[in-house]
Design a protein around this nucleic acid. Structure first.
Lengths: 213, 213
DNA sequence: ATTTAAGCGTACCCGATGGTTCGTTTAGAG
DNA sequence: CTCTAAACGAACCATCGGGTACGCTTAAAT
């Protein structure tokens, strides 16, 4: 370990960022309740005073982390933003989402948000807006575009988007959250699931042009 | 208040049941973390010792409550068990589920299960098996029957069932859990959502016999 | 009526946690 | 080099919560 002996301890913003990073890991690892400010400080080689100088409370620290992480769900949105034929775009989006959601980090974060949302109103709102909500929004935009281009036939894009995303995500999401069933579905299962959902969606909203698969 | 002055305190099984009932209410009201054994005892007019005589620990007490409540989600399954044409059965099931899920109790319970599932493995499993899992099972049975009767065309009933239920439940479930958005969608919204999902499902798996609505 | 197990109430133990304080050390700007 | 704000570390506070112990009371079985 090279940083052991004589590490210069950074100040200000830099130290702050270090602290958030470390806190994030610990929160994700242990969950909200089992993460103590002491642990965070210790693992950062910091004193509690420093920690509290940067973050007024555990809650606020956590909120900051949620803000950072929530947006990560938007990675998989790339496909939607890039555009393309519905079948392709929807499949890509679905696969991306599932992979993200099935990660331990994502599950752990969501679990914490759910827990804390019971106590503090705003946290859940924020999480939704920055994360899942924006995915819905983007999908809606895409759907509208596809309708205009005559690729889809759908008069209620918002509802369609919600239903689609729900169908994609729900089952696995749920299983992960409550730790029921095989925690890691196989790649094959995932693909099958996605295909099922996309087929269903297109059966309803697609404009049939031969079932070329 | 009539029970105030000279209430006879029941013993054994009866007292136990009282305790569980009261504990249930408090858990649902305050959430797991904020519910203390002391509170439960106090509100039951009991002593902590009695409480602990009946339940070895907070965890076990909670587990017992989860067991009782999880099964309640099966009420809406009535429609499925009774049978009927897919469009009707699916709609009934979906409406029933949503109404159940949107109740405060259900949300609160699920939130607790999610939280505790992070710590104790079995709890989530149990909840799933007794609750949502059995709904899936019953739907699968129904779907198979409907296929046999030629009312549906579906070769992967399990996946179809999961997707259907996910699509029905996911969006609202999520919003409730993290307290985002309008906590109580209107009856109209619910019906519209259900209709959308059912239509989508039947577009894919139904055997078209004219779109008689 | 007697007896016994169950219940009550209260005090207590123990460990943990969020948060504070303070005297000392050190990074880094001027 | 000096000086200050930031960081350290360690002790400290108050509180709380799960769980136990004990002596007294009472429901209800015999």
């Amino acid at each position: 370990m090279s940083t052991n002996a004589v590490r210069k301890i950074p100040r200000g913003e830099q130290r702050r960022k270090e602290l958030v990073d470390i806190a994030e890991n610990i929160f994700l690892e242990l969950g909200y309740a089992d993460t103590t400010m002491r642990t965070i400080a210790e693992r950062a080689g910091a004193s509690k005073e420093t920690l509290y100088r940067h973050f007024a409370s555990k809650e606020l620290l956590f909120a900051e982390i949620v803000k950072r992480k929530a947006a990560e769900i938007n990675g998989p949105n790339a496909a939607v933003t890039r555009g393309g034929l519905p079948k392709f775009v929807l499949t890509e989006l679905a696969l991306g989402l599932l992979h993200h959601i099935l990660s331990n980090q994502s599950t752990s974060l969501l679990r914490m948000v759910v827990t804390e949302a019971g106590r503090t109103q705003e946290l859940g709102e924020m999480f939704y807006r920055l994360g899942p909500g924006s995915t819905v929004d983007r999908l809606v935009v895409y759907l509208k575009g596809a309708v205009k281009r005559g690729e889809l036939d759908c008069d209620q894009p918002l509802m369609a988007a919600r239903v689609f995303l729900g169908a994609v995500v729900s089952h696995f999401h749920f299983q992960c959250l409550i730790q029921a069933g095989p925690n890691r579905p196989s790649e094959r299962q995932i693909r099958q699931h996605v295909q099922t959902v996309v087929d269903m969606f297109l059966a309803r909203y697609g404009r049939m042009e031969g079932e070329a698969g």
